[in-house]
Write a protein that binds this DNA or RNA. Sequence first.
DNA 1: CTGAGGTCATACAGAACAGTATGCGTCTGT
DNA 2: ACAGACGCATACTGTTCTGTATGACCTCAG
Lengths: 315, 315
Amino acid sequence: MTSAQSHDDGPFTGRDPGGILAPRLRVFEAVARTEHITRAAEELGLPQPTVSRALARIQRELGLALIERTGRGVRLTRAGRTLLPYVRRALKELAAGGAQLTDPDTGTVTLAFLPTLGAEVVPSLIRAFRADHPQVRFSLRQEVWGSAVRSLREGGVDLALTSPVPTERGLSVRVLHTQPLVLVVPAGHPLARAEETPISAVGTDQLIALNRGRGIRHLTDGLFHRAGLEPRIAFETDEVGTVRGLVAAGLGVAVLAARPHSPLPGTVELRITDPGAERSIGVVWHPYEGEPATVASFRAFVLAEGERLVAGGLA
Amino acid sequence: MTSAQSHDDGPFTGRDPGGILAPRLRVFEAVARTEHITRAAEELGLPQPTVSRALARIQRELGLALIERTGRGVRLTRAGRTLLPYVRRALKELAAGGAQLTDPDTGTVTLAFLPTLGAEVVPSLIRAFRADHPQVRFSLRQEVWGSAVRSLREGGVDLALTSPVPTERGLSVRVLHTQPLVLVVPAGHPLARAEETPISAVGTDQLIALNRGRGIRHLTDGLFHRAGLEPRIAFETDEVGTVRGLVAAGLGVAVLAARPHSPLPGTVELRITDPGAERSIGVVWHPYEGEPATVASFRAFVLAEGERLVAGGLA
DNA sequence: CTGAGGTCATACAGAACAGTATGCGTCTGT
DNA sequence: ACAGACGCATACTGTTCTGTATGACCTCAG
């Protein structure tokens, strides 16, 4: 690995991170390795006096002699020899950290996604992406709507597949798929023969809802609010399966996205006719200057392929 | 651990090595940890604008945004959050390296010593020293005279217990013990009844010698040379025990240091009367500015206690 | 032993950086 | 809603550092 690099400053991100984050370490390492100030300077792309002085400064500040002159060359002192492996390991860490950020093939992508998407959509996305980028690692976090948005804002995740797509300013979004919201009623319910219904038809039925923080709950609350209704919530739970079970048991009705393939036996799903009674699933990210290459690469892939995969996975 | 430190420059060695070797890393770490530029600056003992600009510079050079403004504070971006653990590990390495050099209790001392001293003297020295400094680690190298001196010059070892003490300029020495050289002859040898002898008495006897590079061989060669004689070397070996065995077997005579306690059965030892027929065992080191505290501490101990221990161990 | 070549350190001019003061945007309490 | 406080960024001046040229010292060959 020749690390000779000229010191141009373009806005490209591929430069040596150790040299930027810790220039003194790199100087010391080069001198220690070559035991030759002039050669080290050439390798670093710096004039020889700069290296000479930089080293003198380090030693003065540390109060330790790391190299010493020997004839017409230099040699590491014992102290320098002792320090060298630590410096090497430190530079190695920085190089690894830099690779995470700049190398589109070795980074890690942290992805938050809806519980619903964990079974099929996310595995398909990742499998397809890794076919081209096998070194990229993923940190996957199944998170509900509220916490996914918070994680995005706080920098906890790179990308979120969530629903509904948040409207906060500062977050970029792209809708990949839209599902109609349905009213889930037990088989014997008065509305069970209809195909669609306004939310107002719920009347005095008890509502079985997901806990706050879930996207569907957020949408449900908005739906009732816009209709001027106050939902009468009998149960709150975290599991969509539980909700359907409670509805089947005749304990109330629920607002959900249509169940893939068909409704749970013992339940009927009616499309809700109110405007905006839909659930948009989208990808959300927090845009900023100079984002890791890996993240940009994966996001581009999601934007290109996600629509198809999400629609297929939720069919 | 409060790391607030003023930026005085004294010649003392106890300063934070991470901050000296990699100031940018420390700035980034402090800002990342506090997510607050002003507080990070206070902690680092720097003015706030300095930290602000240093960070801006790092980001510009990396081409990556590591922090971003959020309201009236700052927050790490994903890239910053990704980089942080690497930077932390790098700083940890540097701190460990610095501790090796500046903390008299955690360093490592590399000690070269004569094979003769490995059985008793070196273990006693180290046991006694570690009673007061239990954290200090030792790297022990059994080396003969020639290579010990070379290691010292090249920075391979901190300290050498060797013999004879070298006279090279650039190396500091202190004699700890002096043993007379003896001529070892087989029991039936014409000289076996004498107590002492000049080296010239060897006459035409074959000599059994240690290999070149051994201190005793160096002394033996010198002894013959000063007497104007050419040694007639029949065997060369690396083991003092082998030399004595060959002498006992009547295959020649040898110049050695007196055997502890008593001569090997079947051999007789006669003190050599030539001037300078002695072997000085001493401690040797390569002095330089700003040596690791641990090394200085151990050497001081050796200088204080070594004379007694070496004399005792070779009695 | 002397001269030529090689290597690191120092001198001086110019660029980059640090320190002080201040501006601009944001949050909080009344 | 508005005043005050808070917090990061920028402007200006003095110091430090970088880069070019040169000096001092060592090594090696003849």
